[in-house]
Amino acid sequence: MKKSVLISNIILLFWYFLAMIGIKIGDKYLVEGSFKDEWIFMLIPIATFLLMLFTKKIGKILHLIWLGMWFVTQFLSHEWYTIFGNGFMGNIDNKIAYFKDCISLISIEGKYVPDMYHIILHILIIIAIIVTAKFSKKRSKI
């Protein structure tokens, strides 16, 4: 398996693991710990990643499906609110209040903008999708 597939997916899993344990820097959170509520969502990408490692085609397909669903969920939970000013996964004011103690790269009064942790998470998911899909496509031609 290509190193880039392994590296991109391991970095993604490590970054997501930070959400399980939580990281606070000074008086701000990079991400609050959520193991108690979201532990199953750590097991799913680990399971699909391991399937990808130890099976041929089906593991790669399942991992890509998971990554795609994960990105769509993240997009609807974060970027959708930034772009459209509202969404269907909660109230915008509650979202702003919930993430107020997180490290932000951009802060706009009265507007929700994803915090630094989520911006990086979304970028890592996209990278993992691209690298894994590219590798899977290349392998299927052999």
Results as ranks from 00 to 15, higher is better:
3 K>H: 10
8 S>F: 08
10 I>R: 12
10 I>L: 15
12 L>H: 03
13 L>C: 14
15 W>I: 03
17 F>G: 15
19 A>R: 04
24 K>F: 00
26 G>I: 05
27 D>F: 05
28 K>H: 10
29 Y>M: 10
30 L>R: 00
31 V>A: 02
33 G>L: 04
34 S>L: 01
34 S>I: 02
34 S>V: 07
37 D>T: 12
37 D>A: 13
38 E>P: 01
38 E>M: 06
40 I>T: 13
41 F>Q: 06
42 M>K: 10
43 L>E: 04
43 L>G: 15
44 I>L: 15
53 L>T: 03
58 I>K: 10
59 G>S: 07
59 G>C: 09
60 K>S: 15
62 L>E: 00
66 W>P: 09
67 L>Y: 00
68 G>H: 05
70 W>H: 08
71 F>K: 01
72 V>I: 09
81 Y>T: 11
83 I>S: 08
84 F>V: 09
86 N>K: 04
91 N>C: 09
91 N>W: 12
91 N>V: 09
92 I>K: 00
93 D>P: 10
93 D>Y: 07
96 I>T: 05
96 I>H: 04
98 Y>M: 09
100 K>P: 08
100 K>L: 00
103 I>P: 15
103 I>W: 14
103 I>C: 14
103 I>R: 06
105 L>Y: 08
107 S>I: 09
111 K>D: 04
114 P>L: 11
116 M>Q: 06
116 M>P: 07
117 Y>M: 11
120 I>Q: 02
121 L>P: 07
124 L>P: 06
128 A>N: 03
130 I>Y: 09
130 I>G: 03
131 V>W: 01
133 A>C: 06
141 K>S: 06
